[in-house]
Design a protein around this nucleic acid. Structure first.
Length: 492
RNA sequence: GACCCGUUAGCUCAGGGGUAGAGCACCGGACUUUUAAUCCGGGGGUCCUGGGUUCAAAUCCCAGACGGGUCACCA
């Protein structure tokens, strides 16, 4: 049904006209509440006596209405919750009472002044002595009982979701709490929060296809960053010893429960640290996050009990594969690994060609989903890690780890590669992959190499996928449930 | 990108070849402590879009749009 003919909208527009005819401004400029709903519940909780007829002003959206003859009840909802209001004809007067009854609707924003009391049934209530319409709603809200469940509408019209589904507001409050907890955790350790370019002339720091755009005045191609890694390490070269950034990154890839084209990665870098120090940092940080959100290190996610208490299980990738499958990848060559992957049902055309890439592929196929409890998997193959330093004593691997929770990668960390010549070779290997058709291989960044040639101290780096962390901490099964405005196809 | 499922009133959902349904919301009436208020009466539809089959399509078939799930890619 079109908006013009929608009966419910038409009725509300008529009420709007009538309000204006009565010289009531449906969109006034301000209101000055003395309390919010939660303040009232805190001050005058269930067993508290209400003395001296306290007068309060409170503002919010009308969420329910129970209209009787000469008196009516309604609930106002503000950011903190709901409070019942009570309106009586002989208190408000005939005109104001009838205006409330006839011309105001569920969804309208209202400011009221009145005294706090408790009803016969014990509910804390404000008896309204005067009220002011603060904004007229022209569209009806979803149903009070079932709320809004249609996921498409919930994502496209998140404002509506937030109005009628209180638990959704809770998820996003927790998201902010998580970000704040990490920020304070790093600040306490002397990390400096910085901002680096989102529009980059060359993308790097991860394997992904970028979004491409164009700057008219410079007549130059720019990319939305897929990572801020190379910029943060330039800052380490510059002499900042501990830096971090909550980085909105953009990757031109598929969308599913675990991927949104724009997502948030917290990356931090610490001079003079190696990956073991970053493992400690990771465990401490995420333990703090669990405590901040849940008050305990135990977190329930999709029916599984996860415990973020230190120390976490730490296992090398080679050992993890051995424990899960019995396979010793160190005893396998390329042909052997390919055969093992074929046996596990992988189509031949999907198989990698390099030894280390095959090891990583075998790990992803067999081990990843088994890593339910917080686990650190370390020592990744050289071929899949072009920015990480080679492992002490074994040149086939690099000093890299990923924290896993509930079968999800929620981070990525290295002893950062600071040998400029080695870094150039790694870039060149990436360029070779590119020429072979790998669109996600990393381009060679000459300025980054130049920076490394000035000398970067040994450095530990860590990235944490904030969206996935929030999923785990809020028990949400989809990344769309933890991003306020997830990417959808444009409405036609 | 491939496959499977879904799309019916403002919302939540039934219905599955023969007059378009319910609850809430809405409108009118009664009601000055209700809270899923209650009681009486009423209005409201591009059944996602476009084609096809049929005497007849919301229903069956085809194509498309949008959403969800799985797979692929990625974090």
């Amino acid at each position: 049904m079109s908006e013009e003919t929608n009966q419910l909208i038409a009725q509300r527009r008529q009420a709007l006209q009538e309000l204006r005819r009565r010289n009531i401004d449906p969109y006034p400029y301000s209101f000055d509440p003395t309390h919010r709903a939660a303040d009232l519940h805190r001050e005058y909780g269930d067993y508290t006596a209400i003395l001296g007829e306290p007068r309060v002003r409170i503002a919010g959206r009308i969420m329910t209405r129970r209209i009787h003859g000469g008196s009516s009840f309604a609930h106002l909802q503000d950011e903190t919750g709901r409070i019942q209001i009570y309106l009586r004809r002989n208190v408000l007067g005939q005109e104001d009472y009838e205006t409330f009854r006839r011309l105001l609707d569920i969804g309208d924003i209202l400011g009221v002044e009145g005294k706090v009391f408790r009803t016969r049934t014990g509910e804390l209530t404000v008896e309204v002595e005067s009220y002011q319409l603060l904004a007229k709603a022209l569209r009806p809200l979803p149903e009070k009982w079932h709320g809004l469940t249609d996921v498409e509408t919930r994502y496209r019209q998140r404002y509506l979701d937030l109005i009628v589904n209180p638990h959704v507001r809770e998820v996003f409050r927790k998201r902010t709490l998580i970000v704040q907890t990490i920020r304070e955790f790093l600040n306490r350790r002397g990390y400096l929060e910085v901002e680096t370019p989102i529009l980059q002339p060359l993308y790097g720091g991860a394997n992904a296809r970028p979004f491409t755009t164009h700057h008219h005045a410079l007549d130059a191609t720019f990319y939305l960053r897929i990572s801020n890694e190379l910029y943060l390490k330039r800052l380490i070269v510059g002499g900042f010893e501990r830096v971090y950034e909550f980085s909105r990154d953009f990757r031109n890839e598929g969308i599913d429960r675990f991927h949104n084209p724009e997502f948030t990665l917290m990356e931090c870098y610490e001079a003079y640290a190696d990956y073991e120090r970053m493992m400690d940092l990771t465990e401490e940080m995420l333990e703090q996050v669990a405590l901040a959100v849940h008050g305990t290190t135990e977190v329930e996610f999709q029916g599984q009990k996860l415990n973020f208490a230190r120390p976490w299980r730490r296992i090398s990738m080679v050992e993890a594969i051995r424990q899960t499958t019995g396979i010793d990848v160190l005893a396998q060559d390329v042909a052997g690994l390919r055969k093992l992957l074929l046996e596990r049902g992988l189509p031949e055309e999907d198989l990698e060609t390099e030894w280390g890439s095959l090891v990583a592929q075998l790990f992803e196929e067999t081990v990843e989903k088994t890593l339910v409890q917080p686990t650190i998997v370390y020592d990744y193959p050289l071929e899949v890690s072009p920015l990480a330093k080679k492992k002490r004593g074994d040149q086939r691997f690099v000093e890299r780890f990923e924290p896993y929770v509930a079968g999800m990668e929620i981070g990525n960390a290295f002893s950062e590669l600071n040998d400029p010549d080695d870094q150039r070779k790694r870039f060149e290997a990436q360029m070779a992959r590119r020429r072979a058709g790998d669109e996600e291989a990393q381009p060679l960044d000459e300025d980054y190499l130049r920076a490394l040639e000035y000398g970067m101290p040994p450095t530990g780096g860590l990235g944490i996928g904030i969206d996935r962390l929030v999923m785990v901490m809020t028990d949400m099964p989809s990344i769309r449930d933890v991003i306020l405005f997830p990417q959808l196809r444009p409405e036609s």
